[in-house]
Structure formats: C-alpha cells, structure tokens
Design a protein around this nucleic acid. Structure first.
Lengths: 137, 137
DNA sequence: TCCATATTTGTAATCATTACAAGAATGAAA
DNA sequence: TTTCATTCTTGTAATGATTACAAATATGGA
C-alpha cells in the first residue's frame, strides 16, 4: 500500500482528497492519461470533482517534479508518473501509449551545443503489436 | 532556385499558388513553424489566403510524406520539411525550436518489442544558448 | 467552350486548456 | 473552540488551435 499522503508532503504539496486520488490513479494506471481521461474516471468516485481541479493538480504535480508532461503526438498532453527514463511509443491505430525499455545515455549531457538541457524525450510512432496481429487476420 | 512545382508533382500533389508558397516558406525558413505562423506570414503575400487552406495543405503535405508533424511541447503542432534525421530542442524561455546534430542509430530498427516503428523523434527541452547569455548578465 | 473535379475560402463548431471569481475547506493563533 | 487568513476546489466563461462543412472559385481535360 503506497502512502500517497507522504509522497505529496515530501513534494511540498498539501494533501487533499482530490490530489490523493489523482496521484493514486496515475501510479496505478500507467496509461499516460490525459487530463480528460483522469477526470472521466475519478468523477465516478468524486461526483463533485471539477475538470479545472484536475488541470490545476496536474500542473502543480508537474511543477513540483512529481509528474512529467509528455508531448507525444496529436496535440494532447499526457502525464507520466516519474520513474526511470524510458521511451514512449504511440500506436497510430489504437492510440495507446506504450513504455519501451531502453536507456538513452547518448543524451545524458547537461549541455549540448551550448544549450542547457533539462528534459529529453524519445517518442516513437508506429503500429503496435496488437494492431499488427489484428491486421494480419 | 528550387523547383517547388516539380517537388509537388513528384509527391502527387497538384500545384497551386497557395501550396507553392507554403512549401517555399517551409523550405526557406526552417523555424519549425506552426500553421498559424505560416498563415500570418503568407497572408501578407496572398491577402485572400485562408487559415483553413494552410491547415489543409499541411495535412496533405504530411500525408504525402513531404513534411513531418512534430509534437514537441506545449500542445502545438509544428512542421518540419523532411530532411535528415535530427534532434529537436525547444527553449522554454524564448520558445524557439533548434535543430541539433546527432544521429540516433540506436532506434534504427523497424520493429521494437514487436511494435512496428514508422517514426522516431528525439525532443530535448531546456534553456538555449542565447537565453543563458541574457540571464548571466 | 463546357463540365466534372479539385481547391480555396469563410464561418461555425469542436476540443483541450486556461482565467477568473466565488464558495468551501484547512490549519494556525488567540 | 472560535476566528481569520490562506489555500483548494468548483463552475462558468474565455481562449486558442484545429476541424467540419458548404459555397465559391479555379483547373484541366473532352
């Protein structure tokens, strides 16, 4: 049982039911959800939940380093609970985002060509295993 | 002098003034512009230009493989005239997108973990050379 | 020239996100 | 415990990018 309250406090975020539930959702379902996906799920548990709260919370979490905002494709922001560096793959058929293994030491540099690097993302696009299987039938 | 008409025809796209100008703009100013940036520039030359035309054209170009749509950050789509593989770096201060050298052979595979890969993007974020210089003053 | 087709245009709709202000909850001080 | 300031949450309205759609225009071939 993960202590979400503790995690919030350690990141200087005051715990609230909304924040705890959003954090719980993100750590449980690593589907790189959008704000809207999170809202649609959690409003079932918290009927008074506002979409603005979801957006505010995700912004706060990201600022405090609890989440990373991914800009993958298709003009939508998805959120990832911070863990190890990994690669994201989005299927252009079903829209699911997969994590792929693989470190990318190549870009483990603080400065490249004089620019200071704070984040690096590797995003692949293609057709996922499952959709390929369906196609071949 | 690049023959834009020829490029369009080779990609099965019927040439029109709008399409030629948009292609010319993209090949000339490699600033990874958004649709809106392209519109604001070209409407000076083609006063009747519609923003919808810009969107339609960019979509057509992308479908025909003439452009790549980049999903970098901040929920905006930017377009890149297809050239060699390169890395994109976006400055979080000034918002400019820079191309960085560097090939990434690691991901030159057609399949990874069973998924078919069609595109791969490496996006870095940070503070650019110029903004660093301004800060230190 | 005429016609079918493709392209462009402008407006309205959509979707994600943000701004804002009011209401509710919280926690510390008296 | 009450009070008060502060922080969170909520709902509505605004914004900004993009898309849908239908009418107007341009194009190339018969």
């Amino acid at each position: 049982m993960i202590d979400f309250v503790r995690i919030l406090i350690e990141h200087n975020i005051a715990p609230s039911i909304q924040r705890i539930k959003i954090l719980e959702y993100l750590s449980k379902y690593k589907t790189h959800p959008t704000a809207d996906m999170i809202y649609r799920e959690l409003v079932k548990q918290i009927p008074t939940l506002s979409k603005t709260t979801v957006y505010n919370t995700l912004k706060t979490f990201t600022e405090k380093g609890l989440l990373t905002a991914l800009a993958i494709f298709d003009n939508e922001i998805r959120y990832d609970f911070n863990t190890d560096q990994h690669i994201h793959f989005k299927c252009s058929k079903c829209g699911l985002v997969f994590d792929l293994d693989g470190s990318h030491d190549t870009f483990n540099e603080d400065f490249i060509e004089g620019h200071k690097i704070t984040e690096y993302h590797i995003n692949l696009k293609g057709i996922c295993k499952n959709c390929l299987k369906k196609e071949s039938k």
